[in-house]
Write a protein that binds this DNA or RNA. Sequence first.
DNA 1: TCTGGGGTCCTAGACCTT
DNA 2: TCTGAAGGTCTAGGACCC
Length: 442
Amino acid sequence: MDAFYASAEQASKPSLRGKAVVVGGLGPRGVVATASYEARVFGVNSAMPMAQARRLAPNAAYLVPRFGFYRSISEQVMGLLRELSPLVEPLSLDEAFVDLEAGGAAWDDASARLAGVKLRADIRAVTGLTGSVGLAASKMLAKIASEQAKPDGLVVIEPGTERALLGPMSVRTLPGVGPATGDHLRRAGIHTVDEIVEAGEDELVRLLGKAHGHGLYAMALARDERAVVAEREAKSVSVEDTYDVDIHDRVRVGLEVQRLAERCVQRLRGAGLSGRTIVLKVRRYDFSTLTRSETLRGPTDDPAVVREAALRLLEGVDSTGGVRLLGVGVSGLADFTQEDLFAQAAGERVEQGVEEVGDDETPVEEREVVVERRWVAGHDVRHAEYGHGWVQGSGVGRVTVRFETPDSLPGRVRTFSVEDPALETAEPLPLVEASGSHPHHP
DNA sequence: TCTGGGGTCCTAGACCTT
DNA sequence: TCTGAAGGTCTAGGACCC
């Protein structure tokens, strides 16, 4: 999908169409998740600090991501892909590999191109958004083709033309070559894919190590046999928070770690999983990051067990100077808690009050805070009189709403008291009229 | 410029077992 | 019994990806 989050927001909010839109974290330490093509003109790009984006494009619309909304669109698109083949490998909400041959949807150049053209039309019809398609004989090349196809295009890499196409490209084009490896290669005088081939496999292994060296050399020769794998199982579950200002108070750090542990377990349980290895992640004031992990005797999904493990790990971490990020993760996953009978028994004892004296501390997040209704910029609302709209901004007791829907003209703005009883939060509206949402072909 | 959140994979050393 | 090779597991860190 092209500039997915930003495009979804533009489709949902007519007044933003054709305008620079930046989606990402709005806090002082936020980064850009997606910039609309209009915003990219100003030099705004993914992963850029929000502060920098605001300097480059002060008049862009800045929005927080609405993952639930994007997920619902993503599911529609993935559904279209699964009609082409059972072998669909999602990479993220907005990207996936499809093995067209396995699905019988394509067997040669012409049929593949046809499938791609039709897919793009279907995506457009079902979601109202544009997607780009790259067609090639391997994952690596399909990915490169789709990059070239963006925005709103289709690119085929014809069999036999791969090496010539790849040769002059930057090493950074190849999957697995990021900033560090790119620098490493550059220092060795290797800038292009052709120069990787010239350097030879042994030299690459010497430079980058076994796995990476062999892998990259194969990629440079356009050799990529990786299969499209549907339904990859998760290997870890983690949550992390970056704080607006560094935390110095050790007690506060401990409380945050407990909160994160609870959230992590919620996600773990939600997925019907348990895990054996607990990981604590700490990013310090100077951005240095360290992890500490502990492997239990068996998998657990018990919040108390994960919380205690995380706190034990924290004891071995020096946080003087302050902490900017904390994270808790669980890996070594198993389906549910099959072999955790001992821990379960221990947990039951705890619940019966046999163990653990003096643990009357309420977990932080349980303490109900009396929140006034919060109007989140970018989120949908409904007003009793004016209908559906979205929050453009709020502050000092007022909230500004723009009244428009995906199929309306750009709407006008009104301001209300944050207490206005006529105003309520609302779900995002579908981008395309539900009726003809799925064009079925004869 | 000052760096999110959720993941995956690889490496390498320590330690243990065979 | 000693020694070494080989392999597994645990831990920490780094690179990369979207």
